[in-house]
Amino acid sequence: MSHADAIDVLRRRESEKWTAYPDDVLPLFVAEMDFALAPAIKAALASALDRSDTGYVNTLDTRTAQAFADFAHDRWGWRPRVESMGYATDVSTVIVEGLRRLIAPGDGVVITPPVYPPFWDFITEAGGVVVEVPMLDDGQSYGLDLDAIDRALAAGARAVLLCNPGNPTGTVHTRESLAELSRIVARHEASVISDEIHAPLVHSGGVFTPYLTVSDEARDHAIAAESGSKAFNLAGLKTAMFVAESERMTQLIRSLPEEVAVRAGLFGFIATREGFTKGRDWLDATVSAIESNLDLLGQQVADHLPGVRLRRGQATYLAWLDFSALGLGDDPAAWILEHAKVAFVGGPDFGSPGKGYARLNVACAPDTIVEAVGRIAAALASRG
């Protein structure tokens, strides 16, 4: 399994996770891993530094796109067409630039909270209007409310921004659900952008289904946003990919200004390529470590935080905790930060279904999870 760096090493990092709060706060908020880089990625980046290879990206270089296509074929049975792919700095750029070309100003875009908080901002940046269709929640699992999405599109929304797998819930949408979504979207002549950044982090026993594989309708009306940044902890290196299957969506990607791709990072190209080709064993070990940490978190919560519930998903290294029975208010993360010095992301950031919840990052050392739960338990015990 992958192992996290020591805390004193982590605190020398300059990334947001380790600089946003004072040293007395245990940071488990933003989606950055504490694990060391995959050896193949580290070696490739060191080699680039050794040859002072820090210039611009060559946007005609298809090796990074090919590496992703090979990974997708081997892991998911999907062979994306490299000639129908394009580069960007990150998934947010894929979403915003895609939406700008798929909707008109003022058009509605469906999102399904609880969902990644920047989705609201992406839609606004692209000129759209957010249309919230909350996930169905039976208390055990989450799923798309297809009937409500149908009604939203019938009322005038022109696109769906899909989180697949889901953040923060770790929901891995079924092929059947995605296929039905594609039929609904096609019936209303709308579009989909599928954010699949967490797809390589599906847990054992889970089956990820790329949206572009579920039907001819999906291939016609959708763009997928793909990246190695979550799987291999590369967010700061700035590389993601547009992926299309239809000629219509391929032309949309080709119509983008060259600068959309040029702004990507050369180190991101190198690291993404190495991750998808030579980092697969590291990725498998990392997913194993994440699952082990989720097991540990579940046990720690059961033993020390009665009334708190782990809503365990099938993907990502993000855990979704229900604190609503403890009376900590709509945003328990704020109380936890103040009283326990542990930084989570507040549930309300993910939309109204997140009230009473908090999201935490388990891509860390097991001892960190134990300490975080212990701090919260102690703070709760001293509430009076």
Rank of each mutant, 00 (worst) to 15 (best):
M85V: 13
T213Q: 08
V243G: 05
S324K: 06
D150C: 13
V109F: 04
Y56I: 09
G265I: 09
R158N: 02
L161Q: 13
Q251P: 12
D220H: 14
R63I: 12
L237K: 01
A363M: 11
G384S: 02
A319S: 15
A46P: 07
S324I: 02
L178Q: 04
T93G: 11
E180G: 09
G127A: 01
Q314I: 08
S177M: 15
D23Y: 04
I376Y: 07
P39A: 05
V342S: 01
P168F: 12
P200N: 02
S15D: 14
G329N: 06
A378M: 13
L212Q: 00
G106R: 03
T277F: 06
T213F: 05
F267M: 05
P210E: 04
S2E: 06
P113W: 09
N167I: 12
G265Q: 05
G143R: 12
D331P: 02
E180M: 09
A179Y: 04
H339Y: 08
G108A: 05
T89E: 14
W76H: 13
A190W: 06
L178T: 02
A285Q: 14
S141N: 05
K238I: 07
L296A: 05
L266P: 13
A225I: 08
V214N: 04
A20R: 05
I376D: 03
L321K: 00
A315Y: 02
Q66K: 05
R219W: 00
M33R: 10
